[in-house]
Simulated scan of single mutants.
Amino acid sequence: MTIKGSGPSGAVLQDTPADDGTTPIVELRAAGKSYGNIRALHGVSLTVRPGQVTCVLGDNGAGKSTLIKIISGLHQHTEGEFLVDGRPVRFGSPREALDAGIATVYQDLATVPLMPVWRNFFLGSEMTRGPWPVRRLDIARMKRTADQELRNMGIVLDDLDQPIGTLSGGQRQSVAIARAVYFGARVLILDEPTAALGVKQSGVVLKYIAAARDRGLGVIFITHNPHHAYMVGDHFSVLRLGTMDLSADRDEVGLEELTNHMAGGAELAALKHELAQVRGVDVEGLPEAEDLQATAPVPATEEGTS
């Protein structure tokens, strides 16, 4: 595969090697982003491999959105390295990232609610037939292809002509995931896909995240819900105030420990002390500061940072 379209600060123009399961598709090494005097991200290292779900967790303002923008080509990093298939890149636009196989599914899903499901599936990349200049949409082929690709992901819809806005939130997320897979995504970035969904619909989305992983994609699952992350995640990275607070594989961290890091370990321990003074508040489940220090893995910010 070739990374196309290099401008003055575009991506490298080289052929990418075939995925062998060991070479990371996407890798950040001590990457960071500054906006003038404001350092939004610093010293962040992240590795995304084929067939693996990398969960990036963090509270509001932790730097998740900035991380997404760097990997998806919307913004460029100002420190560290960004590598695709082992080669440094500096994308000039989201189109260059997409040409490299990096697709992003945002919370708004980039769909048109009143358009049919099949039309949204091919939105911006419609199939056509006939000679130029009288080419026309190949509706029958688009419907067949959309139906087949959705079924390949385990998504069965009774009517592809129904407006996509009539689907549930989980179904719309699933269609967006299947669309990205069909158009050649090797890395799928999911921006808070379960944030506005109920328990059942969140389960539907998590099911298709696992399906994308099983098809060999590298998935970056952005979320603030450690329980959802732990259901499907293979590696967990917790961002805190723009730096990496935790980077651990699934066998290195438990759900309780992940939740404590997500909640802010030291602050949570301090909160326990304060709440203990309030009558009727059960603080037994909250951690002590010394417990967090004893069990916490080494923060990823200690690697490769200056």
Rank of each mutant, 00 (worst) to 15 (best):
G124I: 10
K64D: 09
H42R: 11
T259A: 15
K4N: 15
A180T: 11
K272V: 06
R119F: 06
L46C: 10
G10K: 05
P8I: 12
T78Q: 01
R213A: 02
R90D: 01
G63V: 04
I25A: 13
L206E: 00
L137E: 13
N120W: 11
L217F: 15
G36Y: 01
T47K: 15
T78W: 03
F221H: 08
L241R: 10
V134R: 10
P17N: 12
V56K: 14
M244S: 14
K143E: 07
F121Q: 01
L246A: 11
V48E: 04
N260H: 13
Y106P: 03
K69W: 00
P193G: 14
I102C: 12
R240H: 09
L197C: 04
V187C: 04
P24I: 04
S6M: 09
R172Q: 09
G61I: 13
I222E: 03
G36L: 01
E257T: 15
R215S: 03
T23N: 12
K200F: 08
P116N: 03
L46A: 05
V89I: 03
R279M: 10
T128M: 14
A248Q: 05
R179K: 09
A270W: 07
G92E: 02
G280V: 05
A176T: 08
G242S: 02
R179P: 00
V12Q: 15
A103K: 07
N225V: 04
L286H: 09
Q162K: 06
L13W: 14
N60I: 13
R250N: 15
P116A: 03
S6A: 15
L46I: 05
R119T: 01
F183A: 01
E303Y: 15
R49E: 10
M244D: 13
V44M: 04
R279Y: 12
W118E: 02
R172G: 03
H227P: 00
E126Y: 05
V204T: 04
D159L: 13
D161K: 00
G43W: 05
P50L: 11
I139S: 04
I3H: 04
R95L: 11
G233Q: 09
L157A: 04
D85T: 03
P116F: 02
E192S: 10
G203V: 03
F121C: 00
V84P: 00
V283L: 10
W132I: 13
Q52C: 06
V105R: 03
L57W: 13
G254K: 13
K64M: 11
R179A: 02
N120E: 10
M115Y: 15
L239Q: 05
K4Q: 14
A178M: 02
A110E: 11
G198V: 11
W132H: 09
G21T: 12
W132K: 08
K64C: 12
L255M: 05
Y182D: 00
E96D: 01
G165E: 09
L241D: 10
G124K: 04
A294M: 12
E303H: 14
D19Q: 12
S9L: 13
N120C: 08
M115L: 15
I220K: 06
R129V: 14
G51H: 07
H261T: 11
P133G: 06
P299A: 10
K200G: 07
G36Q: 02
T16W: 03
A276N: 11
I164E: 04
E256I: 14
E274Q: 08
